[in-house]
Design a protein around this nucleic acid. Sequence first.
DNA 1: CAGCTTTTTAGAACCATTATAAACTAGTCT
DNA 2: AGACTAGTTTATAATGGTTCTAAAAAGCTG
Lengths: 132, 132
Amino acid sequence: MKYIEKLRNSGLRPTKQRLQICELLFDTEKTFHFTINELNQKIKDKIDNKISLATIYNTVHAFEKKGYLKQIPVNSNQTYFDTNITDHHHFYNLKDGKLIDLEKSDVGPINIKKKIDGKKIKSIEVLVKLED
Amino acid sequence: MKYIEKLRNSGLRPTKQRLQICELLFDTEKTFHFTINELNQKIKDKIDNKISLATIYNTVHAFEKKGYLKQIPVNSNQTYFDTNITDHHHFYNLKDGKLIDLEKSDVGPINIKKKIDGKKIKSIEVLVKLED
DNA sequence: CAGCTTTTTAGAACCATTATAAACTAGTCT
DNA sequence: AGACTAGTTTATAATGGTTCTAAAAAGCTG
């Protein structure tokens, strides 16, 4: 299994459930955005056994902590995650709550001129809200 | 009362509670960021009577809808609002969850090269996460 | 396999937010 | 001013995403 190493590398034991989650998250041609709720639905659709919500939350958060998933800052009651962990940005379609990737090259360089002493910049995220 | 017109202008009747909320939100030298919880606390501290949570939510959302307040997209369990409604961005201090304003001039122009047909850009928001 | 630790699970708990329905208030008309 | 109507406030319940818990199950080491 190709994800065993990835999991071990993150300090996670390769359990059946985690491997199944890995397949749904990382075994795809394209990266995608999801909420826990959507992932849970996908699990129900594509996997025979059930995986409890607690496990899904635990696993997704573990991946997020290790950098295998990114959280996307959006104003929503649900948390959005992204399997695309490259440095990029997002469109947010207000009408349906869907996200669309915006490559870094589509935005151009962002130069933060203000400095906060004692602090380092961890990430710069641009959210472009779309309306009709 | 200087807020009566502002409220009427937004289609809101100038009630005692709304005027009190206006004073706390807009009668300050500096703009500031807040969560509903923090605003509720401030109301308890500075106002004799109580204002129910429902009224606070309703009023804040009405102002947000009319553009007198802005919501800030952050990954948090609580919604952050900003009384600074000028076009600007934010630092987000991961350690304490506090926000710091970033003037537009501190970020430089952002040119979104990608277009989504049938959609207009409503806003562009930059969130700069800070760590130690 | 035995023993120990981690993980999974269902369900409860939590907490921000939203909905509800009754009491109240503002604005208007006479 | 009195009374009517529509909008508002309030306490409380409901909702829903997320986190916690404790017991059962599975992984790992020797």
